[in-house]
């Protein structure tokens, strides 16, 4: 799967196989309380499965200052 982390710094990662959303976030060490996973403009929940051929984006919801 292709993963694009949108912010704070944009980066792209390729992973093999399929994963549930919560597994993907755990794998990337991202807190599910502060990150949102999107596929084809659709917001996903923790149990949704991301397939090997899917492309997802991850948005961090945290702002500071």
């Amino acid at each position: 799967m292709k993963v694009t982390i949108r912010n704070p710094v944009r980066r792209e990662i390729a992973l093999d196989g399929s994963l549930k959303v919560h597994q993907l976030l755990a794998h990337l060490n991202l807190n599910p309380e502060s990150h949102i996973v999107i596929r084809d403009e659709e917001l996903l929940t923790s149990q949704d499965i991301i397939g090997n051929d899917d492309a997802v984006q991850i948005v961090s919801a945290i702002s500071g200052g």
Partner: peptide
Amino acid sequence: EEECPNAAGAHSLLYKD
């Protein structure tokens, strides 16, 4: 979506985390 450059290292971000 972009953060203010001055936010890096702010205590508020540590507390939020």
